[in-house]
């Protein structure tokens, strides 16, 4: 994954959380912390990326993710261009490389890429012109690094340093880019123990090689966990004979108040959204006191600002002292 770092070890692209040095991961979270303060003010904008152009290149529709990237770029004063490729040229047979060349000719500085194929963001990163950065906004089953970073940021804010924590990731691990990126980010930040919990049909082979403990029994997997990260279950998993029904999934792997009692008494509950109520989460848990799901959404903007500013900002240092605000 050396494509992400330049020869000086600076972050040039963000494709995955795998292999990122711990100090870099920490710096992203620290930078997000400082932006988070800005976002609490009435004027929520800084001029760090004034004059820079960021292209949201979405080959797969996702209003939520695109909106948070767009907002993050605007808060940094960058110009934003949204290209919805799902209905655009590649479906007309245009080659992806040709399309990239055309977009580069417009002199943009970064692509935020969402694509249904694993490896698409890395492919684009390997083929963009020097000086152009790529931020992966989700590629197939492979990676969703900004989601994983905002999750780590949320955990750190709620629970402090990750070293003593036991974190359980529950649900459709097999198809989840979020889970893969969470595993790499959390272990990279020194989390004490990361568990994955799923029925065998939703566990990818050799997942333990990524450094996690595997549980097929939900109750055992939740025992003493400090953080429970639920994943979204796609309805089409019933068609592929991976699961019999959403009801049976909920009965074995849904997070209920009763199951939550197995965890640490102060455990937090997370979900990348949107929640399938009654499938992954009992609504009482989703809306309950342990849930930090809405904080995740808010933190998503600060973390994406941090990633954009580090990737595009040259030095990539966290802003020190008061951040200059944009007048008006």
């Amino acid at each position: 994954m050396s494509v992400q770092l330049d020869p000086q070890g600076q972050l040039r692209h963000l494709i995955n959380t795998e292999g990122l040095p711990r100090d870099l991961l920490t710096r992203i979270l620290d930078t997000a912390e400082s932006f988070s303060e800005v976002l609490g003010k009435s004027v929520k904008k800084v001029p760090l990326l004034r004059g820079r152009t960021i292209v949201n290149l979405f080959f797969e529709p996702s209003t939520r993710t695109r909106t948070t990237f767009e907002l993050a770029a605007q808060r940094l004063s960058a110009d934003v261009l949204n290209i919805d490729v799902a209905t655009s040229s590649t479906s007309k047979g245009e080659n992806l490389l040709d399309m990239l060349r055309n977009l580069e000719a417009m002199q943009c500085d970064a692509f935020v890429v969402r694509h249904a194929d694993s490896g698409a963001a890395e492919f684009i990163a390997r083929n963009v012109a020097p000086g152009v950065s790529v931020i992966n906004a989700g590629d197939g089953r492979h990676a969703h690094p900004t989601q994983a970073l905002l999750d780590a940021f949320t955990i750190r804010r709620q629970k402090g340093p990750l070293e003593p924590l036991t974190i359980a990731i529950v649900g459709d691990i097999l198809h989840s880019r979020v889970a893969r990126s969470q595993i790499h980010a959390l272990l990279g930040l020194g989390a004490g123990e990361v568990r994955v919990i799923a029925p065998r049909t939703l566990l990818p082979r050799a997942i333990e090689r990524l450094g996690v403990r595997v549980h097929e029994d939900m109750d055992a997997g939740l025992e003493g966990a400090d953080v429970v990260m639920m994943l979204r279950l796609q309805h089409e998993r019933m068609q592929g004979a991976l699961l019999p029904s959403e009801g049976e999934f909920f009965s074995r792997y849904g997070l209920t108040e009763q199951r939550l009692e197995r965890t640490h008494p102060e455990a937090i509950v997370m979900h990348p959204g949107p929640v399938n109520r009654g499938v992954e989460l009992d609504p009482r848990v989703a809306d309950g006191p342990r849930s930090v799901i809405l904080q995740q959404v808010t933190n998503g903007i600060a973390v994406r600002m941090a990633v954009m500013s580090i990737v595009l900002g040259g030095q990539g240092e966290a802003p020190t002292g008061p951040i200059e605000e944009v007048a008006g």
Binding site: S118, D139, G140, R141, P204, R205, A206, L210
Partner: peptide, 8 residues
């Protein structure tokens, strides 16, 4: 392992 890591 490779398929799992790459999400393929």
């Amino acid at each position: 392992e490779t398929a799992t890591r790459l999400g393929l």
